[in-house]
Design a protein around this nucleic acid. Structure first.
Lengths: 231, 231
DNA sequence: GAACGCCGTTAAGAATGCGTTAGGAATCCG
DNA sequence: CGGATTCCTAACGCATTCTTAACGGCGTTC
C-alpha cells in the first residue's frame, strides 16, 4: 500500500504543458490537481488545500501576480512560479508578492521535483503530527519518546524503553530471548536471559493493569516474549 | 540611523565575486560577513549565526555538498547556493542535501536580493503571525529574543538562550545530549555533556518556580532533556 | 512425589549519571 | 587598559539505573 503523497495543484493554461507536468508529478509520487485558469486555480486551492502550487504567470483570465496576492490573503501554501518570462523584474515581482520560487521555462523535471521537495520541507514543520502506536490503554509516541497509559505519562528507564519499543516494532510476533538481548543490550557480552525476566517484570508493573496476569506483555515459554496486539 | 539588518554570510573563494556581492548586500541593507574557504565558512557560521548563507559550491578546500551536510547537522539556517555549474544533477544534489535555493552564475543582484528576502521569510515563519511561544508562566518572543516569566523579563546569556530555544523548537520531544550539543555548541569538538548539566541548572534557576523540582525543563536520564508541554 | 527447568518477584550493592557550586579563564565592551 | 559578563572546568554528594543474587511458584519428567 502506498501512503497518498502530497498534493500538487498546477495552474497552467497550455494543455501541452499540463500533460507534460502531470506525467512528471504523478510518476514522482504526487497527487495531481490542475486548473486551466486563475479563477479555477483559486477555487481549487480553497477546496482542496494543496500542499504545493505550481503557477504559470501567463494566464488568460487574470494576472499571475494578482492571483498570488489574492491567495496570500488567506494561505501560505508554497507557490512555485513557472514562467516563460526570464526577466529579472518578473522574478523579483513574483517573489516579493509571496512566491517561494521562480523557475524559468524550459526546465528539467528533476529540478522541478527537487524544488518541490524544498517547498514541502519548508511547509512541513507545522503540519507534522507525531505518529502514535496505540494498543488498549497505551499510547506510545516514538518521536517524543513518550509512553502514556490512560493518558497519564509513565516514565521508563532507557533499558525499559528500548525493550518496550523493540517489542512494539515486532508487535504481534514472538521475539526470541537472543534477539531481544541483542537489540536492547547491543550485543554486550554479559547479557543474560535473567535480565529479560527482571525488565519484563518491571515493564508489567508499570504498564499492565494486573501485572501478575499480563494482557499484552506475554511470555512464550522457552522461546521469548511477544506483544499481543488483538484481543 | 538604520536598524541593523539581517546578517548574510558569503562563502566564496573568488575575491572578485566577493567584492561584487559585498557591495550588493551592504547597499541592500544587510550586515555582511565573508569566508574564503569552507572551513572558515563553518567556523563563522558557528560563531555568528548568520540569518542567511550564500554558498559557492566551487570551494578550494572542501566540497560544497559536504559543507552543506556538516552544516545541516546542527543548523537550519537558509542556504542559497550560487554556482557556475548549471547542470540539473548539481542543482538536485544541492537542494536535496538541504539547500533552500540554487542560483546559477551569472545572476542579477535584484534576483539575488529577492531570493534572500524569500529565504528570510521562510526562516521567520511570518512576521504577520506570532513568533511567540507561550508555556505556563513563560512567554518567549523569538523575534525580540526576549523571555518573560510572569511578565517580568529574564536575561539569558547567549548559550542559555540557544539551549532554551533549541528545546522549544523540539517542544515535547526528548532531545538527546548529542543533538543538543550539536545545535547549541555547533559541533565544536570539545563539547561535553557536562556543559548541558551546568546550563540546564542555570536555566532552571532562572526560569523554573522550584528549580529543584522542574516542571517543564525535564531530564530524561541517560537520554537527554525535554521541554514538557501540557497535553 | 522428588528433581529439574523455567519463569516471576524482590531486594541490595555497584555503577553510572545528574545537579550543584564555585573559581579561574576567556571574552566583550567601554 | 580595566571591569563586567560569560564561558569552561573540576569536584563532590545525591539520585537513578543497572546488575546480580536469592527465593518461591508452576509445570514437566523420571
Amino acid at each position: 500500500m502506498t501512503i497518498p503523497g502530497p498534493q500538487v495543484l498546477l495552474v497552467e493554461d497550455e494543455p501541452q504543458m499540463r500533460r507534460f507536468l502531470r506525467v512528471a508529478l504523478e510518476s514522482g509520487g504526487y497527487r495531481y490537481l490542475e486548473a486551466a485558469s486563475g479563477q479555477e486555480g483559486l477555487t481549487l486551492a480553497v477546496q482542496h488545500r494543496p500542499d504545493v502550487i505550481l503557477l504559470d504567470l501567463g494566464l488568460p483570465d487574470m494576472d499571475g501576480l494578482d492571483l498570488m496576492t489574492r491567495l496570500r490573503e488567506w494561505s501560505r501554501v508554497p507557490v512555485i512560479v513557472i514562467s516563460a518570462r526570464g526577466q529579472e523584474t518578473d522574478k523579483v515581482g513574483a517573489l516579493d508578492v509571496g512566491a517561494d520560487d521562480y523557475l524559468t521555462k524550459p526546465f528539467g523535471t528533476g529540478e522541478l521535483l527537487a524544488r518541490i521537495r524544498v517547498a514541502l520541507r519548508h511547509a512541513d514543520p507545522g503540519t507534522a503530527e507525531d505518529p502514535r502506536f496505540t494498543l488498549g490503554r497505551w499510547q506510545v509516541d516514538l518521536a517524543k519518546r513518550q509512553v502514556l497509559v490512560e493518558g497519564r505519562e509513565i516514565h521508563l528507564t532507557p533499558l525499559e524503553y528500548r525493550l518496550f519499543t523493540t517489542l512494539i516494532r515486532h508487535a504481534g510476533k514472538v521475539v526470541t530471548h537472543r534477539q531481544l538481548l541483542k537489540e536492547v543490550w547491543g550485543g554486550v557480552a554479559g547479557a543474560q536471559p535473567l535480565y529479560l525476566r527482571v525488565y519484563m517484570a518491571q515493564l508489567r508493573h508499570k504498564l499492565e493493569e494486573d501485572p501478575s496476569r499480563p494482557r499484552y506483555l506475554q511470555t512464550e515459554p522457552g522461546v521469548g516474549y511477544r506483544l499481543k496486539t488483538e484481543d
